[in-house]
Amino acid sequence: MNTGASTFSQGVDLSLYIITGISLFFLIGITVVMIYFVIRYNKKRNPKATNIEGNFTLEVVWTVIPTLLVILMFYYGWMGYKPMRQVPDNAMEITVYGQMWKFSFEYPDGRITDTLVVPINQPVKLNLVARDVLHSFYVPAFRVKEDMVPGKDNFLWFEANREGRYDVLCAEYCGMLHSFMLSSITVVNQNAYDEWLTAAPIVTDEHPGLAILKQNACLTCHSQDGSKIIGPSFKGVYGRTQLVETNGETREILVDDEYITRSIYEPNADIVQGYMRGLMISYENIISEEQVADIIDYMKTLK
């Protein structure tokens, strides 16, 4: 297991060692006794078995001892977990958006990033927002994980105590590219963090349509350079005539405002020839009509 890098690591690892220690003791004990009996009381050595119905004292002993031990294990598990729900008042709040198949982070000053940069020894509270289906925000090095559930305000918090770059993984299955839904947290000292804050601009000069495409992870599946990923590329798509399959029939359509809007809101209505059905969800409640207009405006620039 990797070395912990948050204030929770110690409590989690301690309970892991205690439970694993007790478990190993019993596993080895049971196995050794079992093998010993099989050898010692083999029918060659012991041709006549002795019937023993049971032993009340033994039953009591091996009920009481496991009971005490499981209470002990529960206790350490609980103690390691308890601080995970007690967010310090001085925690910095960041909103995390999860959607197929991308995490994005919104800082208090409004900047939106793909990866997280946080200062060391600073409690950070992450408000977890799922935009489409279930996801789970998992940082193995910090020993934290919490599901992102649509319509539910889940959160987690952590305080990193070691500088470095740590993986963020999605731990709740979320469809085709679940295993590619990755990000990272970079833990830096306060100076470096302040520097990063001032260096990285909040407002970019990129096209608003491109910003929406990035924010909604559209570019995970649709390229801008004509290459085929999972869905059709956006390059030169606007104004083109295209063969699509609608309800099992092939027809020719013109890629115009109406078609693009429909592709975003009812992605399985028309499928471009050579692509698979059912890989994209409807963005009807996620991308507004004004935003669709921005996207169309941006697509027109991709000649």
Partner: peptide, 26 residues
């Protein structure tokens, strides 16, 4: 008995809160 013990004992790791948070869905 041997394999089920490993299965059951690893279940204790998953039943404890602190360790389950780390190991859930892994």
């Amino acid at each position: 008995i041997f394999l089920f013990s490993i299965g059951g004992l690893s279940g204790l790791v998953l039943g404890a809160l602190a360790t389950d948070i780390h190991l859930h869905d892994t």
